[in-house]
């Protein structure tokens, strides 16, 4: 209740800054891991946190009306499978979504903080941030996570959204220093990211339809799972499939499990015929 006793000097519209000044204990990167940062060159350093769940292949592809963003469901801890149903694609607000690769814990926390950040700004200011503004803010949050990178806790997202000023879907990728780069067609990250990108590159065309871009996304995840141990393919026995969302002018929409299952059935039937 501390915010109520006196009006805070802090007068910004950023939830991130609010936490930083008033509740630094809740900041992801400010936690005391009780030790000097173990440099990356010393992976067995005493303070490097041993195998935590990791997220793996996530991708985004632009199409005629917007962007499709998708990810597999597997989480790994070293050589063990830590989870089969992990969700790596998140709705951030009404018009943008992010997909994460890296250490699951801090990644999910970053998503939650970013969601709160955008909603907080919108409520205080009465208007939404511009898409550009949202993408920059995410870059700053990744930069703030840099100290954690030295403990091996890397979080890298892809951020997609619909930019109403430009009337198009946009894709941003990031590096661990918060560097923000725009991709004009597609991108994939994570341990199977390269394999996914290879597939997309072969089949990508400008102005794909929603169905085709979704099929391409699922095919790329399938191929990535084929090559990369860290990426999970469609699990037909348990009925677990990669998740996807589409972002268009109208906002974010989940792609239903049935639609994804149907597309995979189609894809697998084709594969079998080819053999």
């Amino acid at each position: 209740m501390s915010s109520f006793h006196t009006f805070p000097e802090h007068d910004g519209s950023s939830f991130f800054d609010y936490l930083l000044h008033h509740r630094p204990d809740l900041m992801p990167a400010n936690r005391d891991w009780n030790g000097e940062a173990g440099p990356l060159s010393d992976p067995n350093g005493p303070h490097r946190i041993p195998s935590l769940p990791h997220g793996t292949t996530v991708l985004a592809i632009k199409y005629r009306n917007g962007v499709v963003i998708a990810g597999d469901r597997r989480a790994t801890e070293g050589f063990q499978i830590a989870g089969r149903q992990m969700e790596k694609v998140f709705k951030v607000d009404g018009y943008s979504a992010m997909a994460i690769a890296g250490t699951a814990g801090p990644a999910i926390e970053m998503v939650k903080l970013f969601q709160t950040e955008l909603e907080h700004y919108e409520k205080l200011e009465g208007v939404q941030l511009s898409y550009e503004g949202k993408a920059n803010k995410l870059g700053q949050m990744i930069k703030a996570n840099l100290p954690m990178v030295f403990h091996g806790l890397v979080v890298i997202p892809i951020y997609v959204g619909y930019d109403h000023r430009r009337n198009e879907g946009r894709i941003f990728k990031y590096d661990v220093t918060g560097g923000r780069y725009e991709e004009s067609e597609y991108h994939a990250i994570g341990s199977g990211g390269k394999d996914a990108r290879n597939t997309i590159r072969e089949h990508y065309r400008k102005s794909l339809s929603e169905d085709d871009s979704l099929k391409l996304a699922l095919l790329s995840l399938y191929n990535a799972a084929d090559e990369d141990v860290g990426t999970g393919g469609p699990d037909l026995i348990r009925g677990i499939y990669p998740t996807a969302k589409v972002v268009t002018e109208a906002g974010i929409a989940d792609v239903g499990d049935e639609r994804i299952a149907a597309l995979y059935t189609e894809l697998i039937t084709e594969r079998k015929k080819e053999r």
Binding site: S3, P8, Y18, L19, T116, H120, K123
Partner: peptide, 16 residues
């Protein structure tokens, strides 16, 4: 001012 304080309180609680 009260409105803003309320939003901060609510968002903080929801986040925590």
């Amino acid at each position: 001012n009260l409105r803003k304080a309320g939003i901060r309180h609510a968002d903080l609680k929801g986040f925590m």
